[in-house]
Design a protein around this nucleic acid. Structure first.
Length: 329
DNA sequence: ATCTGGCTTAGAGTTACATCA
DNA sequence: ATTGATGTAACTCTAAGCCAG
């Protein structure tokens, strides 16, 4: 069962907001080319089955779930059902005044530059335009969360600072393992990127890394982990679905067993009645496809029709009336 | 056309760290 | 202040695909 991310028929579409930073920076700007339609995406799973269509949450809830880190994608229903369409909202965590900065960052380095081309903040000369800008970008742009309290903002600044120091340490000592925490804004942006493309080509990776002031390797790792999380969630959903299938089949099986029991009881108790049935009482044997008459001698096909398996009970029999009873030994 | 080695990338599994209750 | 649970960044390992020689 595979996860399929669909962007309509244009699967090779690049990140639109990377191609046009203004889309990303100022999503509220009513660019006519960036309609909600453009940003719509579908997520479908190869399994093609519905998940709790009876208890489907509201659209708002779905939107919320879709933006949550631990979102559980709703699987599309059967092939008949349309895939779930989720609205893609570009992050609103970028301040408008960072728009120019973002462009500057992109302009300061070329796309073709590789991982080393995104230097740590403190490695670059302090008077370097790029590095000073990146430092500025790193603190201001990533502290942009519209946090209602100062602590969040301080945290963001601290994170940026620790990022810088971590990268320093990386350069100095590659043996120690560091763990940085991506800011909410960075995560949100990566999340949105992931919704557009669950995998990145090198160009996209580098561009994204520059946008977020991360190393391409970090972006790559994030996408790897994100894919893993998606798969894990999907596995959980699948498991849940199969569990429910199993339960319902067990229930149906129980019901059918009961039905068989009742039919057996009915057969044995009302045999004389069937012996008087007219010849028009016909049944069709599903396996030999011969019509059996109930008034005739108990032919083999008629006897066959009395097969006790549940499958024969569900077969194309034509129970005009309860069939003649066969002596169940 | 086939083989081979190098390179890149993705997935799976794991570890280490940050955060929170 | 401590601790266990949880989430996740980052790591290793492996396999597959691609390409040049």
């Amino acid at each position: 069962m595979e996860l399929a991310l669909s962007l309509g028929d244009n699967t090779n579409k690049q990140f639109s907001f990377l191609e046009n930073p203004s889309k990303m920076i100022n999503p509220s700007a009513s660019s006519t080319s960036t309609s909600d339609k453009d940003l719509r995406f579908c997520i479908g799973f190869g399994g093609h089955r519905s998940l709790s269509s009876s208890s489907s949450p509201s659209v708002e809830e779905e939107k919320k779930k879709a933006t949550e880190p631990n979102n559980r994608f709703r699987v599309s229903s059967s092939s008949v059902d349309p895939p779930l369409q989720l609205q893609l909202h570009f992050p609103n965590w970028l301040p408008e005044n960072s728009q120019q900065g973002g462009r500057m960052l992109l302009g300061a380095t070329t796309v073709a530059e590789e991982e080393e081309a995104v230097p740590s903040m403190s490695v670059s000369p302090p008077d370097s335009v790029t590095s000073s800008f990146q430092l500025d970008f790193g603190i201001k742009s990533y502290g942009y969360e519209r946090s209602s309290n100062k602590r969040d903002l301080d945290d963001e600044v601290d994170r940026s600072a620790s990022r810088a120091s971590n990268e320093d340490n990386d350069d100095e000592n590659g043996s120690t393992r560091k763990k940085l925490r991506l800011s909410k804004g960075q995560s949100a942006f990566l999340e949105d990127s992931f919704k557009e493309h669950s995998t990145l080509n090198p160009k996209q990776k580098i561009a994204l890394a520059k946008q977020l002031n991360l190393r391409p390797r970090q972006v790559e790792v994030w996408f790897q982990n994100r894919r893993a999380r998606t798969k894990l969630k999907q596995t959980e959903v699948d498991c849940e679905y199969l569990k429910r299938c199993c339960e319902s089949l067990t229930e149906e099986n129980r019901r059918l067993q009961k039905e068989v029991k009742e039919l057996r009881a009915l057969k044995t108790s009302s045999s004389p009645f069937y012996m008087q049935l007219p010849a028009t009482t016909l049944t069709m044997c599903p396996s030999c496809e011969r019509v059996a008459t109930s008034t005739a001698l108990p032919s083999t096909s008629a006897v066959h029709n009395l097969g006790l398996s549940t499958s024969s009970l569900r077969g194309p029999l034509i129970p005009v009336k309860p069939r003649p009873a066969k002596q169940v030994s």
